[in-house]
Design a protein around this nucleic acid. Structure first.
Lengths: 225, 225, 225, 225
DNA sequence: GATGAATGAGTCTTCATTCAT
DNA sequence: TATGAATGAAGACTCATTCAT
């Protein structure tokens, strides 16, 4: 068998898979996983129902493969090689960039996130874990390193908990993203992300308390609720 | 017809509805909306399938009515009448209480939140809006007032945007709650909420930057992405 | 709950099951298991497709239950209490009766036997075993006892192997039954069962060899092929 | 066109057909006709699915052609030219050989016989007839001639019905073969074929009745059930 | 001739909903 | 009002067959 033919075939198979997954993602995001039908996905992919099964084992298999082939490239290299900041001003600039990028991505992939959120809780544990690893973990780890390094250089508090903080900052934005983009599908407050992002980053860096108050304060030491 | 009988009837009908909705909420949270069957809900409610249709028009009708009867009372009056703080220390204490309460509630209702998240994006817009109003909005408005008042009294920065900030604080916690309680169902980081909540509140109040840095800083003024 | 209602319900359920199984047996015997469709069975049972599944878990479940509820009573008490013969003449008379009864039964249930034969080899081992026990085993054991007792009383050869002989006699007839009734569905030779049965029984009792030859013969002593 | 090429082509076509039929027989016997797929047969034949349709019109066409090309040569010439026996002792020896050969063949082809049994009842009448002629008929006719000749020479009873008897002897063994080899796939009684065959042949020749009884007996004269 | 992707008709099975009792 | 059997529409999935390459 000529190797060329095999390559061509492999490429065409890849194209078909992408074509189907795009159709599936589209239908899933409009109807949800349960509400989507293979028939509709096939129509969207301009294929017959049977053909779908030449490339994927089941409807759930489609779902599981969507992030791998479709969203992957977008989610992973979020802040791959963010430089370590030298000053708070630089930190603020970098964090705004990072946060802005995160917002853009979530907004761009809101349809997929809907599917993700509505399906995940009822997937098999294995599928769930595989799914989860794709998402915020990586971003959080990058940010964690960023904070840890920055703290060592005195750009952040020495007593800052980088694990918690690295999730708190995206969380601030997540609230807006979740309600506006994913759940409601429309804006709820009168501020745009160009106002939200700087404000959130500023709070993250300098807090909500007035300047005088900050001067007196030390690190929290636990004790909850 | 004696009015007493009518009252008794109405009360019994209400009891039946509650009984059914509780069963439905229970089954929905284990199986999801699509995965739940009327048969299973009927069994959980110790009724027959037919009887459910004497009280609700359809399966979706059950879903729509769950928050009205069940969750409302639990989620809404989160911080109904939080006092206005006089000092930053008191604000920190109050915010810790508020945040802790929010965490407790979300954790207690995680199963229902799963249903909420998985179903909401695909409901009719009207149902979606009705659903949404019950949840974080109200809490956010309470917090918003709290911040606005506090700012006026100098406990928070004068230039703090209370609308954004009131959503940023719950968001910080939301990140942990979403991934751990709702999506994954297990702890992901090595800190418990008794460490997360104070740290988040502290960041919210005083920021991640070191004290010296804060002294120099002014308010952000927009410019994004 | 009144017990009477439960009884009525149980009886009606039994009637429905029988009704469905009869329809299934009918369709299976015409089309085979694989060729039959639930839709056709439902039509034959004058029910909707869905109703079938209120009484049986699957198409295979129908198949497995057919002998239990339908054919059982016919196959089991074949020669339940055949008297022990005192003379060879009586033995011949009794064996003709027995063989004739067997022929009648197989012919009466030929449609079911078709299904049985075509399906059995591809059932799960457990189902297969359960299925098998219903059929020739019992008949063979009755005959075995009959031969063993007869041999003790001198009506059959003392050195006759009753286990083998008890299967050889039905086997003689089985050849005709299998080819004519089950496989071909029409007569293949010019003799009817009223001639076949006596001849087979006679051979079974007195052999194909001429009288003179028999006088000289002893028992076989193994050594095969 | 050169005739040589045509011959080569015909021969290659024959080889391809055999290759496919062997694969089909193999798959059919493991999965049954309905359970087998063209895809699996193609894999077993080391061909593509499409190629099969260059040689056979349909899946059923494969089934119908299996005996012609495969089983024919094995099953047919069972006792092609059995010599006519001169004495009862020789007859017994020959019959044992014949019966043993039959047992061996059935056992060797048990997998195919399963397919045969499960498929035949639901084939078209024509296919059924074609199928049937290959099998026991021919063997029975050989045995019939053997018995008829032997009777003429006084080795068997003059009043023996050779048509019936020629089917009764194989039938004796058929009972064991059917239950053990075809239906159950495992031994059911504690005797091996090396004991079953001689015993069955002995019964066939000399009967189950004791010697004294035989001396008194005449031919049966009908009258049934 | 060989290939194997594409097709779509055909099946089993599920389940929300209805309705006679 | 309560029941639960009956219904049948709908959907995932299979696979024999076709056909462009």
């Amino acid at each position: 068998m000529p190797r060329v033919a095999a390559e061509v075939r492999a490429k065409r198979e890849g194209a078909r898979r992408t074509q189907i997954l795009e159709a599936a993602a589209h239908v899933f995001s409009r109807k949800g996983f349960a509400g989507a039908t293979i028939s509709e996905i096939a129509r969207a992919a301009k294929l017959s129902e049977g053909s779908i099964y030449n490339y994927f084992r089941s409807k759930e298999d489609l779902l599981i493969n969507i992030p791998q082939h479709l969203v992957q490239s977008v989610l992973v290299p979020l802040a791959g090689d963010a430089p370590v900041p030298a000053t708070p001003e630089e930190a603020e600039r970098l964090l705004r960039l990072l946060a802005g990028a995160m917002v853009d991505r979530v907004r761009a992939h809101a349809p997929f996130l809907k599917v993700f959120l509505s399906t995940l809780p009822y997937l098999s544990p294995a599928a769930r874990r595989a799914y989860m690893q794709l998402l915020p973990t990586y971003a959080a780890e990058v940010l964690e390193r960023f904070l840890r390094e920055g703290a060592r250089r005195g750009v952040f508090r020495k007593d800052l908990n980088p694990v918690i903080a690295a999730r708190a900052l995206p969380g601030m934005l997540l609230m807006f993203l979740m309600t506006q983009e994913v759940l409601l599908g429309r804006q709820m407050i009168r501020y745009g992300y160009d106002e939200i992002v700087p404000e959130a980053v500023h709070i993250f860096l300098y807090g909500a308390a007035p300047r005088e108050a900050r001067a007196r304060i030390r690190h929290p030491e636990g004790g909850r609720t």
